[in-house]
Design a protein around this nucleic acid. Structure first.
Lengths: 142, 142
DNA sequence: CCAAACAATGCACTTCCATTGCAGGTTTAT
DNA sequence: ATAAACCTGCAATGGAAGTGCATTGTTTGG
């Protein structure tokens, strides 16, 4: 729908990313997915387009703070859209990621923040990543 | 020293891993290192031996609970010895890992356990991994 | 003690994912 | 309109993980 298209475009522009056709498509794809996706997932969804372009698009998104990288232990990098107003780089917005061992999907649990950690003396933290593994709500219902 | 050799051997045997020469060497290497190491690190330390052997040795160690895998976000798998009596698989022994962005080393902070996390309704956890990034005590002193 | 059975090792090869170089094509600013 | 900056597509590279198979080493049962 038109509205959505316009708002997506606005998000890209706000982050200083030119809203090319490819980027808009990939952004839309990410927005529709509830889960974190791999580069291969995007490739599969857009068979017509080039791996490299997708790769670089995601890199651009990552550097611009449009998506954030998630390493969930599956060995491949996954990406998910940052929430509106999210500053993933900052300590303040460290949410946790949940990897379901049944459906193999990874999602952001944006409501659940990483609790404050007391580090041993001498250590200073700039970033943290918490991945919880188990069974997600959907799979627990089955 | 002899004592150490014997005690290392005992550890392997307790975990049902045959103490071959190669395995003893790799175990010793891990025990001396304070940090988590990559397969490449071990390769470099033992140039004479085969990548595959090292790879499979570490796999064996991992499956037997002698080492645990750490994914610190550097993209490559790292391994560290489990503490005596550690049961890395169990919730009870989830310590945190610290990745120093200055020296690029990763270490276990075994004293610091992962705090209890309240998951949203429907989610059940079996495992968790917390990696904190920043500057370690040594690099902060420089 | 010897042979059969099993486990560990070495070598070659494959696969998967990430990344880069370069040559067009497109957009933007002057 | 034109140059500069940026984006895209294609080809190729690199690094790490993993597999198959033949060989060697180790254990165990007779």
């Amino acid at each position: 729908m038109r509205i959505n298209y316009e708002s997506n475009r606005k998000i890209l522009e706000e982050k200083q990313v030119r809203p090319t056709a490819m980027r808009m498509l990939i952004f839309k794809f990410l927005a529709q997915k509830q889960m974190a996706v791999t580069l291969a997932d995007i490739e599969t969804a857009f068979e017509k387009s080039e791996r490299t372009t997708i790769y670089r698009t995601i890199k651009t998104f990552e550097e611009s703070g449009i998506v954030h990288l998630i390493e969930d232990g599956s060995g491949v990098a996954k990406y998910a859209l940052c929430e509106a107003g999210c500053n993933c780089e900052l300590d303040s917005d460290l949410h946790l990621h949940f990897h379901c061992e049944t459906c193999k999907e990874t999602q952001c649990l944006t409501e659940t923040k990483i609790p404050h950690i007391n580090l041993p003396p001498g250590f200073t933290a700039t970033d943290a990543s918490l991945v919880v593994k188990g069974t997600c709500d959907k799979c627990n219902k089955k």
